[in-house]
């Protein structure tokens, strides 16, 4: 069980992670979602012992990472695919990792074969494309056959075929009962690849749940096209509905259901030509959840300081 226990991490003036507290359950793919700079990578760096927490801790089955005797046999992580010596071959890179953790060297060729880089195993990794480096990084994460896997923005640099491969791969890892924790700043990616999603912004926990649960929390809008949009706006305004003009005779209504809108329009004698409930997309949910926690937002766009 991977546990983030009231974790805070400060770099100088910046509080990168602010009291994060959650558990990542085995058997499902857990998405770790947040805008760039929200503290996802920092959290992952603390999990694998690279950075020291300012407060709190992260544990793997109750132990901190540096208490693990053979960490690669318990946690496999791909944080930065380019974090390796460019002049060493892929095979030697993995052999060094295997030796340090007493993993049989036969496992090196197995994982190279599995991720599809066996044909370039003896080439210097400096010449690898980002996609190939990602695959090698995945091979490194799988080397010790660990129960917990961490991936930081894994789809970056992958071609569409690779993205599809990696999604299926995460599912199969989770099906084997492993903990799969995947970060991304792309809601659309998480929507298709994760079962469970944890949303953070500015280092703080925002919400968590399944994709369906997250979309259900957001109230949708209703698109109404009618003969007199101005009067309808007036009528619905009295019922606390908020109308935003979409086109000449169409408005987008929030705060009221389509039933309420239809009845109010009939009572006021306004002919309704179209009444369509719009379900909030996961993207909208994400935008509204993190709107006030964007590190580098667009809120001040157009404002000249």
């Amino acid at each position: 069980m991977l546990k983030i226990d009231h974790l805070s991490k400060r770099y100088g003036e910046t509080l990168a992670v602010n009291d994060l507290d959650f558990e990542v359950t085995p058997g499902v793919v857990t998405g770790f979602l947040g805008p760039n700079g929200s503290g996802k990578s920092t959290t992952m760096r603390v999990i694998i012992g690279l950075d020291h927490p300012t407060q709190g801790r992260t544990t793997i089955d109750g132990k901190t990472y540096d208490q693990l005797k053979a960490p690669l046999r318990e946690v496999g992580a791909l944080l930065d695919a380019k974090a390796l010596d460019p002049s060493r071959s892929a095979r030697n890179h993995l052999r060094a990792l295997a030796m340090a953790n007493r993993i049989p060297l036969s496992r090196v060729d197995e994982v190279l074969e599995f991720v599809g880089v066996a044909s370039v195993a003896n080439k210097r990794v400096g010449g690898f494309s980002l996609g190939m480096s990602q695959r090698l990084g995945i091979a490194g994460a799988l080397l010790g056959d660990p129960g917990i896997l961490l991936f930081d923005e894994p789809v970056n640099g992958l071609d569409p075929e690779g993205i599809r491969w990696i999604r299926d791969f995460f599912r199969s890892l989770a099906k084997e009962g492993r903990t799969v924790f995947v970060s991304s700043h792309l809601m659309s990616e998480m929507a298709v690849s994760a079962d469970q999603i944890i949303v953070i912004g500015r280092g703080k926990f925002i919400t968590s749940g399944t994709v369906d649960e997250l979309t259900a929390t957001a109230t949708g809008t209703v698109y109404v096209r009618c003969a007199d949009a101005t009067r309808l706006t007036e009528v619905l305004g009295r019922l606390q509905g908020v109308c935003e003009p979409v086109n000449d005779n169409g408005v987008s209504v929030s705060g009221l259901s389509s039933d309420q809108i239809g009845e109010a329009a009939m009572a006021a004698g306004i002919a309704v030509h179209e009444l369509t409930p719009q379900r909030a997309s996961l993207e909208d949910v994400f935008m509204s959840l993190t709107a006030d926690s964007l590190e580098y937002g667009h809120r001040e766009a157009g404002v000249t300081p």
């Binding site: 960490p71 380019k82 974090a83 060094a96 953790n101």
Partner: peptide, 18 residues
């Protein structure tokens, strides 16, 4: 220092946290 230059130190320390 070459490990710091390439970033390989992070992979190394993940494998050998002690």
């Amino acid at each position: 220092t070459s490990e710091y230059a390439s970033g390989a130190i992070r992979t190394t320390l993940a494998a050998v946290p002690r």
